[in-house]
Design a protein around this nucleic acid. Structure first.
Length: 403
DNA sequence: TTACCTTTGAAGCGT
DNA sequence: ACGCTTCAAAGGTAA
């Protein structure tokens, strides 16, 4: 089912939109792409069925209110000292803006909401999660099973979990917050259920958000981090490293280095610090690696692109987009134009004129760094955050040739 | 039963 | 400083 490899969902690049994603109000979200793995006939059987070819979106019908009610899932931040006695009682008052923190506060536990005196209603602060995923990790299946048999699982796991080191989850970043909020909507609009496909759509929509809309989520995320820091002063993301080492064996062999071999490594990575004599001159001067650029050129120019997944247009806009992509299939046929990912486009632009690389976004932009909690988030920073990894190959990104 | 997929952002680590 | 990796959510899928 779903979309066959190379189906009508042609690749599309919003012409001339290389620098900025269009705001949402422009109504043209970035395009969807076809899973290249499927195109190559490599991997999973097509999914994401889309009956009828056109999406009969039932938009926000009454049932959506129910869906919306489910948007907010139980708190992820373990607060219950009874559960493990992990941390001292959480602060009774935190300098968190109730207006902007809003419903996301539920994640810090209803008790916290009360403790904060936020006066969050039951809708905003659902009952505390019965499962103990707040402190200990549960696999997906465990979570699924827990939903059907919470009590038994809880009782059976209690003894185990009390011996485990409490697991404090990372605070959600802006996109995660956006996803959490919009997922149900997308799911309702689409017939898709698989998160991978949903997330691709959400990723595109995220880029189509206006700066102001994104800013809201960056601000939320900043507050999440702030609150998280206050709840768990000693916590570090490092604490969770290796936590999923058993279950998360991500494929790490899809980066440019692997795909392009050692030639697609910069001298530093290629030879290491102890063989600096092997480095090219620019590398020794900490300039752009000429060998890397040459290798790129020799390879025909490669850019990281997201893994493509067969998708169905989920909204009217998406359908329009697909039509546009068909209309512009000539341009879209070129991998250059097929790079719908802003990151990919940025990478392309940087490839086209390496000397004119835009300055990379700040590692910890002011206002997004929890340590810069007092600094507001500026629009310019948001802009740069929107294009965080221009030429960076990521897990899940593949390299396609630019001819 | 459980890792994978897929997204972006934050953060950590190694060089 | 830079590049890479991990982990946050989510739920269907595949091994």
């Amino acid at each position: 089912m779903g979309l066959p490899a190379g189906s009508s969902l042609s690749l599309f690049c919003p012409g001339g939109e290389l620098g900025q994603p269009p705001p949402a109000h422009m109504g043209i979200p970035p395009p969807y792409q076809i899973d290249s793995k499927l195109a190559a006939g490599l991997a999973r059987t097509p999914m994401y069925p889309f009956p009828g070819g056109a999406y009969p979106y039932p938009m926000l019908s009454p049932e959506m209110s129910q869906v919306a009610a489910s948007w907010h899932t139980p708190s992820m931040y373990p607060i219950s000292s009874a559960a493990s006695g992990f941390r001292s009682p959480y602060p009774t008052s935190l300098p968190i803006s109730t207006s902007s923190l809003s419903s996301e506060l539920y994640r810090f536990s209803p008790t916290l909401g009360g403790g904060l005196g936020l006066g969050l209603g039951p809708a905003l602060v659902p009952p505390p999660p019965s499962k103990s995923d707040l402190f200990t990790h549960h696999s997906r299946s465990q979570e699924k099973s827990s939903s059907s048999d919470k009590s038994s699982e809880q009782s059976s796991n209690n003894s185990k979990e009390q011996n485990k080191k409490p697991h404090i989850k990372k605070p959600l970043n802006a996109f995660m917050l956006y996803m959490k909020e919009m997922r149900a909507k997308v799911v309702a609009e689409c017939t898709l259920k698989e998160s991978a496909a949903i997330n691709q759509i959400l990723g595109r929509r995220w880029h189509s958000l206006s700066r102001e809309e994104q800013a809201k989520y960056y601000e939320k995320a900043r507050q999440e981090r702030q609150l998280h820091m206050q709840l768990y002063p000693g916590w570090s993301a490092r604490d969770n490293y290796g936590y999923g080492s058993k279950k998360k064996k991500r494929k790490k062999d899809r980066g440019p280095a692997e795909l392009g071999g050692n030639n697609l490594k910069k001298c530093r990575a290629r030879y290491g610090l102890d063989q600096q004599n092997q480095w090219c001159k620019p590398c020794r001067r900490k300039k752009k690696c000429v060998r890397y650029m040459e290798a790129l050129a020799a390879a025909g120019g490669t850019v990281p692109l997201p893994m493509q997944t067969p998708q169905s247009p989920c909204s009217e806009e998406d359908v329009k987009l697909e039509e546009m992509s068909d209309a512009s299939s000539d341009e879209a046929d070129t991998p250059l134009n097929s790079a719908s990912s802003p990151g990919g486009l940025s990478a392309l632009s940087s490839l086209a004129s390496p000397a004119s690389d835009p300055p990379p976004p700040p590692r910890n932009p002011v206002g997004t760094n929890p340590r810069d909690a007092n600094n507001p988030l500026s629009v310019n920073q948001l802009t740069s955050q929107t294009w965080p990894r221009a030429a960076q190959a990521r897990p899940g990104h593949e390299v396609i040739s630019v001819s």
